[in-house]
């Protein structure tokens, strides 16, 4: 289904331009980290790519059909067990009933939550809920996984666990597109960095190059921590 192409994507609300104009393509293989300060438009860009928000103008074009999933900053769980949260997603995805339980359990094992499969999802800790959100995405076997600051609310231990699961997605061949405002996470998780500033793509480069020799003034100040956020 890749590459995913953004053609002249622009988004404005109430007369203010929040994003764009952006022309970009996401290729298969590499992990893309969308980096930028709070309010730069990273989340908005991700939602437009995923199809949750329609751009004011321009087009989002997929090269083919396939499954995509998204993990949000704050996981939203239904008032049912961890297992049933996953089988619910599988049912929406049209997976036959007889296969759902097994696929859901496999996904829970993958993120280390098999032990709490029958527990109510909402009473799990923040880190566990986020891993459950990843398990829900895993069960769907997406070709592209969008992650919107998936560890922004988590402590370092939980963050490491989440990043390990994201690595597994990558190893399984899922295209990773994630936003973060953490430089460390961008270094650890990215193959390439797309740096967003004031709704524009200020720079896009392989991760090593981005951190060692940033081309744009905005990226340089962001990396040095000079911007007031």
């Amino acid at each position: 289904m890749l590459p995913l192409r953004l053609e002249g994507v622009h988004f404005s609300a109430g007369g203010n331009t929040l994003l764009g104009v952006i022309d970009a393509a996401f290729e298969t293989g590499s992990r893309t980290v969308i980096l930028g300060p709070n309010g730069a438009g990273k989340s908005l860009l991700l939602r437009i790519c995923h199809g949750l928000i329609a751009p004011s103008s321009g087009r989002v074009v997929w090269a083919g059909t396939g499954r995509q999933a998204m993990v949000f900053q704050r996981p939203v769980m239904l008032r049912r067990s961890a297992l049933r949260n996953i089988t619910y997603a599988l049912s929406l995805a049209g997976v036959p009933g007889v296969q759902r339980d097994a696929r859901a359990m496999e996904a829970l094992e993958r993120v280390g939550l098999a032990g709490v499969a029958r527990r109510a999802a909402r009473v799990l800790s923040g880190g566990e809920q986020q891993r459950l959100a990843l398990a829900r995405a895993w069960a769907l076997a997406p070709q592209v996984l969008f992650l919107d600051e998936p560890t922004a609310n988590l402590d370092p231990g939980a963050t490491r666990q989440i990043e390990a699961v994201i690595d597994e997605f990558d190893a399984a061949g899922t295209k990773i597109i994630m936003t973060t405002h953490s430089l460390g996470q961008a270094r650890r998780m990215g193959d390439e960095v797309m740096f967003i500033h004031h709704g524009q793509v200020a720079e896009r480069a392989p991760v090593k190059q981005f951190f060692e020799a940033p081309a744009s003034e905005e990226a340089r100040s962001f990396i040095k921590g000079e911007m007031p956020w």
Binding site: F72, L78, Y88
Partner: peptide, 19 residues
Amino acid sequence: DYEEQLKSLGVTPSRAALT
């Protein structure tokens, strides 16, 4: 609270109402 997550999973309005 649920809208984005459920839409991301591909929910239809009637199914969302039931859920």
